[in-house]
Design a protein around this nucleic acid. Structure first.
Length: 732
DNA sequence: CGAAGAGTAGTTTTT
DNA sequence: CTACTCTTCG
C-alpha cells in the first residue's frame, strides 16, 4: 500500500469507529473472527501516519510471541518503515523485561540478572518442598504463581491462605522469593509484577514511563491478570490513551490468573470508556456460528454479543461417536485423506483440535501410518530440550555467576567429575555463608571438600567458566577485569528515549537511585555485557569446543539421537549469532531473552502444507477451513478439575461452575476456529493410564443444539466408501 | 562418581 | 507406551 493513502481502509462501520476513536480510553469487544487484529494494526497505522504519533511512543501488547509477530508483520505492510522505527509490539513479558533491563537497580537486581523459566522455578520449589510428588509440586508452584499474579507478597498470601496445604505454600513462597533474590533471578511472573509494583510506588518513575508510552494497545484483554492490569494502568496514567481489545467469551486462561472481570473493571476505572462491539464475523458459515452462539449462550454474560456472518449457511456439523481414541485417530486420518481428495483441498486447510497435549500422540501415530504431513503446535519448545538447556546453562552462568541452577547444570553436564557428593558439600557451605555455589567453588578449601580429586574437578570447572567470563568481558585485547568488577555501560538494543539510565550505580551495590540523565555512552562497551557481534560468534564456538559437548552426546546416546541433538545445538548457535547480529543485542542480553522466546522465527519462511494438530488453547486466534474437534467427552472437555467432586460447600460448587464456564469458552473457541466445516467426535472408551474408562459425550455437544441428526455412523456414505478404498490400499 | 538397568508413575491448558 | 526416577553395580 502506498504511503499517504487514506486510512483506514477496508473496515466496516464498527471497526472504523474503533480505529478512529482517540478521544479517550476505548474497549473493543471483538467476537471471534470479527477482525480484531485488523483493528489493532490499522489503528497503529492510523496513529503513526495520520495522527503524528512517533513510533517509539506507541506500544502494542500481546500475550504470545506469535501474536506479536503477526501484528508486526501486518503493520509493516501498512506503514512506511521509516515511521516504524522504535515501535514496540511485543508480549507483556518482553515489555517487562525491557523495563527491568533499564530499571534493574530499583528492583534490587544486578544488571546481569537471569530469568528462570518454569522448569528452573520448579526445581527450586522441589528443593524447598523436599518432595518429588509431582502433583504436589505443581500445585504449590501454581499457587505461588497465582498469588504473585494477584499482587500478593508472602505476607499478603499468608493473610488469605487457608488450610495446611496453603500454609505450607506460603512458607515455600517466602523461601522461594529469597532464593530468587539470592540467585539474582526473576521468574516469568516477576517480569510483570516487578514493573507494575515499581511503577505504582514511584511517581518519578511513572512519569518517565508515561512520557514514553503515549498510546497503548492491548490485545486479548480478557486474558490479563491483576498484575497486567496494574501495569496497563500505570503505563497509561490519567491520560488514559489506550485501546483494549478483547472477548469475554474467549477467556480461557483463568487457570493462570487471568480475570475476565478486568473487562468490567475497566469501565469502572475509566468512566469515560468508549465501548465498541464487533459482532460481524468474517470467518465462519452461519451453521457454525449458530452452534457457537448456542453453546456460549449457556454461560452468564457480562456483555451481550451475537455473532453473525453473511458467508452462507454451510454444511451441517457432524458429530461422530468412536469406539476408542485409537479408532478416533485412525478414522480421522482416513477422513482427512478422503476429504482432501474430495474437496480438492490442501493439507493445511485442516486442523485437528484437542484439549490436552497428550491427545496428539495417538493422532500423530495415525497420521504417520497414512503418510499425512502434519505439524504439532506447542508440545515441548525448542528451548526446553535437554541439549539446548545444557548449552544455555553455560551462557547463563557466564552472564550471572550467582545463578545456582545454571551452575549445577553446567557443572554436571557433560560429566566432569563433579557429582552429587561434591555439589552437596558446596551447597552446604554456600548455605552456611549465604553465597552462591560459584562463590564457594571459586576458592574451595579442604574443609569444604576433603577429597583432592573433587577439589581439582571443581577448580578446573571454575577456571573454565572464569576463562569465558573474562573473554566475554574483554574488548580489543584489554586485560580482563577481575571478578566482581563493576559492570559498566548501558547499551540498549531498543534505542529508547531518553536513555533512562546511567551506569555507575552498579558499583555501589545496585541500590542507587537513578537520575534520568542522558548517559554518555561513548566507549561504554566494556563489561560482561559488551560481548556482541563477531566476538559473540567466536566465543560461542570456543565455548562449545571447550565443553566437548558433541563428544558427550555421541558417548551417551545412540548415533541417531546424538546426531539430531547436535543438530539442534548447532541450530541454537546459528540462531544466537544471527539474533545478536540482527537485533544488535549483546549475547548475554540475548541469553536473558531466550527464556521468553519460542523459535517460531524459523517457521516464517513458508508454512508447509501440513495438517495442523493443536491444543484448543494454542488454536486461539487461528482459523482453518475444516476443523476436527476430537475427544469431546465429559471429563476431557469439560476437563474434570481437581478432586473436589464430593465437596458440596458453596465455595466448591461455585468454583466448579466457573471451571465449567471456562471449559465452555474453550469449546466455543474450538468451534469458532472453523470456517466451513466442523466435525466433532467423542470416544465411548478411552485408555487412561493403564485402564480403559467408559466415556460420555460432552454436555457441550447437546448444547450446540444441532438438528437431531440420527446417530447413524454411516451418515455420509460417500466418504466412507473412500475410507474403504484407503483401508484396502493400506492392507497391501 | 557415573552408567546401565529395572521399575514406576504419569496425562491441562503457557509466557 | 514412554519417559523418567531410583537403584545397583563397576
Amino acid at each position: 500500500m502506498a504511503p499517504g493513502s487514506t486510512l483506514p481502509q477496508g473496515l466496516n462501520a464498527r471497526q472504523r469507529e474503533a480505529v478512529l476513536y482517540l478521544d479517550g480510553p476505548c474497549l473493543v469487544l471483538a467476537g471471534a473472527g470479527s477482525g480484531k487484529t485488523r483493528v489493532i494494526t490499522q489503528k497503529m497505522a492510523y496513529l503513526l501516519r495520520e495522527c503524528g504519533y512517533q513510533a517509539r511512543h506507541v506500544v502494542a501488547l500481546t500475550f504470545t510471541n506469535k501474536a506479536a509477530r503477526e501484528m508486526n508483520e501486518r503493520v509493516r505492510t501498512l506503514v512506511d518503515p521509516r515511521l516504524l522505527r522504535g515501535l514496540t509490539v511485543g508480549t507483556f513479558h518482553s515489555l517487562g523485561l525491557r523495563f527491568l533491563r533499564e530499571e534493574y537497580a530499583g528492583a534490587g537486581l544486578k544488571r546481569g540478572f537471569s530469568i528462570l523459566d518454569a522448569t528452573d522455578a520448579q526445581g527450586i520449589v522441589q528443593e524447598l518442598l523436599a518432595t518429588t510428588d509431582r502433583a504436589r509440586l505443581r500445585a504449590v508452584q501454581q499457587t505461588i504463581s497465582l498469588w504473585k499474579n494477584a499482587l500478593l507478597d508472602p505476607d499478603g498470601a499468608a493473610r488469605v491462605a487457608q488450610g495446611p496445604d496453603e500454609a505450607e505454600a506460603v512458607r515455600v513462597y517466602r523461601s522461594y522469593e529469597a532464593t530468587l533474590r539470592a540467585y539474582q533471578s526473576v521468574d516469568f511472573d516477576d517480569l510483570i509484577r516487578l514493573p507494575a509494583q515499581m511503577l505504582a510506588a514511584d511517581e518519578a518513575l511513572r512519569a518517565r514511563w508515561q512520557a514514553r508510552v503515549q498510546y497503548l494497545l492491548v490485545d486479548e484483554y480478557q486474558d490479563t491478570n491483576a498484575c497486567q492490569y496494574q501495569l496497563v494502568r500505570m503505563l497509561c496514567g490519567d491520560r488514559a490513551m489506550f485501546t483494549a481489545v478483547g472477548d469475554d467469551d474467549q477467556a480461557i486462561y483463568a487457570w493462570r490468573g487471568a480475570t475476565v472481570e478486568n473487562l468490567a473493571q475497566l469501565a469502572r476505572d475509566y468512566p469515560s470508556l468508549r465501548l465498541i462491539k464487533l459482532e460481524q464475523n468474517y470467518r465462519s458459515v452461519q451453521t457454525i456460528l449458530e452452534a457457537a452462539n448456542r453453546v456460549i449462550g449457556h454461560n452468564p454474560k457480562t456483555f451481550d454479543k451475537t455473532l453473525w456472518s453473511d458467508l452462507g449457511t454451510g454444511e451441517p456439523i457432524v458429530v461422530t461417536p468412536m469406539d476408542s481414541d485409537l479408532a478416533e485417530a485412525e478414522s480421522i486420518a482416513m477422513r482427512l485423506s478422503a476429504a482432501r481428495f474430495e474437496r480438492q483441498a490442501q493439507w493445511k486447510d485442516f486442523a485437528v483440535l484437542y484439549r490436552g497435549n497428550h491427545q496428539a500422540r495417538v493422532m500423530e501415530q495415525a497420521l504417520r501410518t497414512l503418510r499425512i504431513p502434519y505439524t504439532v503446535s506447542g508440545g515441548q519448545s525448542f528451548f526446553d530440550k535437554a541439549e539446548i538447556r545444557d548449552v544455555l546453562a553455560w551462557l547463563r552462568l557466564i552472564a550471572n555467576e550467582d545463578e545456582d541452577p545454571a551452575f549445577i547444570r553446567a557443572a554436571t553436564t557433560p560429566r566432569r567429575g563433579i557429582g552429587q557428593g561434591t555439589l552437596q558439600a558446596l551447597g552446604a557451605e554456600a548455605a552456611r555463608r549465604g553465597v552462591s555455589l560459584h562463590a564457594v567453588a571459586a576458592d574451595v578449601s579442604e574443609a569444604v571438600l576433603p577429597s583432592a580429586r573433587q577439589r581439582e574437578a571443581v577448580r578446573d570447572f571454575v577456571r573454565l567458566v572464569d576463562h569465558f567470563r573474562a573473554r566475554a568481558s574483554r574488548r580489543g585485547g584489554a586485560v580482563p577485569p577481575l571478578p566482581g568488577t563493576a559492570v559498566q555501560g548501558d547499551l540498549l538494543a531498543f534505542d529508547p528515549d531518553p536513555p533512562a539510565f546511567d551506569a555507575a550505580d552498579a558499583a555501589v551495590g545496585g541500590q542507587a537511585v537513578a537520575e534520568a540523565t542522558p548517559a554518555g555512552l561513548a566507549g561504554a562497551a566494556t563489561g560482561i555485557d559488551g560481548l556482541r557481534g563477531d566476538d559473540a560468534a567466536r566465543v560461542l564456538d570456543d565455548l562449545l569446543a571447550a565443553m566437548n559437548y558433541e563428544r558427550h552426546l555421541y558417548d551417551t546416546l545412540d548415533e541417531r539421537q546424538a546426531q539430531s541433538r547436535w543438530a539442534n545445538v548447532l541450530e541454537l548457535l546459528e540462531w544466537l549469532k544471527r539474533k545478536a547480529d540482527e537485533d544488535d543485542m549483546t549475547l548475554l542480553e540475548l541469553v536473558q531473552h531466550v527464556a521468553l522466546v519460542t523459535m517460531l522465527e524459523r517457521a516464517d519462511d513458508e508454512e508447509p502444507d501440513a495438517v495442523k494438530l493443536s491444543t484448543l488453547h494454542a488454536s486461539k486466534g487461528l482459523e482453518y477451513p475444516h476443523v476436527y474437534l476430537i475427544g469431546v467427552e465429559e471429563g476431557l472437555l469439560p476437563h474434570r478439575g481437581g478432586d473436589d467432586e464430593g465437596d458440596v460447600s458453596e465455595a466448591a460448587v461455585a468454583a466448579r461452575a466457573r471451571r465449567i464456564e471456562e471449559e465452555r469458552r474453550l469449546m466455543y473457541v474450538g468451534i469458532t476456529r472453523a470456517q466451513r466445516t466442523l466435525r466433532i467426535s467423542w470416544c465411548r472408551k478411552r485408555r487412561r493410564g493403564r485402564e480403559d474408562t467408559i466415556c460420555e459425550p460432552s454436555r457441550f455437544i447437546a448444547e450446540m443444539g444441532l438438528q437431531a441428526e440420527a446417530p447413524r455412523p454411516v451418515g455420509d456414505t460417500d466418504p466412507d466408501r473412500t475410507l474403504d478404498r484407503l483401508k484396502a490400499l493400506l492392507k497391501r
